[in-house]
């Protein structure tokens, strides 16, 4: 069992977790920016202990239609990593990447072509890879990641999946969340790192806390 109590995390620990979000998302943002050849900036990461009912408010409401790309994490750190964007934003992103030249028929349910969907998965892969590898080198912990799992749906429904994992151990979830966007706000979204309780202990311990 973990000796970490989510309700008793001190300021120092919050600062460290925020810094992890900073470094991870910083690398991920750079990767994204290179991919679309545009400047992408990010805000100061938020580390928040949230009640389940508050989680979806964080990304702009339960019913907002988003693309969620989820990775399950293994190795020394277990949990989930989620990369989340507005649906409109991700279509824009796909258009940038594929140069608007896709002629394949859009899938009725998602409005993305097969090509577009696989481009999104690849974006997710590269970005989360950048996030996780920086986290791994910072902490000296081994982190493995699953293949990307994607869903296009209401934010509340998508966030229920990590929320349920947290529900097994408590009534709140601790998230490290970073919002990113380009200058014109065409591309924006969220990186959310959701380690399990034990993994929080592992991360903090690896950094000497």
């Amino acid at each position: 069992m973990s000796d970490l109590d989510l309700n008793k995390i001190n300021n120092m620990q919050y600062d460290v977790l925020r810094e992890i979000g900073n470094i991870g998302a910083g690398n991920a943002t750079t990767a994204l920016s290179q991919m679309i050849n545009a400047k992408v900036s990010m805000n100061v990461p938020k580390v928040e202990l949230l009640e389940f009912k508050e989680i979806s408010n964080m990304v702009g409401g339960e019913e907002r239609i988003v693309v969620g790309i989820l990775f399950t994490l293994g190795g020394d750190i277990e949990g989930m990593m989620m990369f989340m964007m507005d649906k409109v934003v991700s279509m824009h992103l796909v258009n940038i990447l594929l140069g608007n030249t896709e002629h394949s028929k859009p899938n009725e349910q998602t409005d993305f072509s097969e090509m577009g969907l696989s481009a999104l998965n690849e974006i997710g892969n590269i970005i989360s890879g950048a996030y996780l590898s920086s986290l791994s080198s910072l902490t000296n912990l081994t982190i493995t990641s699953s293949i990307p799992y994607m869903a296009i749906d209401m934010a509340g429904a998508i966030l229920s999946v990590p929320a349920i994992e947290f529900g097994k151990i408590g009534d709140k979830a601790l998230l490290i969340e970073t919002e990113f966007g380009d200058m014109d706000n065409y591309v924006n979204g969220y990186f959310i790192l959701i380690p399990t309780l034990n993994s929080y202990s592992a991360i903090l311990k690896s950094l000497g806390l």
């Binding site: 979806s56 409401g61 019913e63 209401m154 509340g156 966030l159 229920s160 349920i164």
Partner: peptide, 12 residues
């Protein structure tokens, strides 16, 4: 006359 709602049910 009130109605009751829950938004964005996923696996719940």
């Amino acid at each position: 006359p009130d109605v009751i709602t829950t938004l964005g049910l996923g696996s719940c």
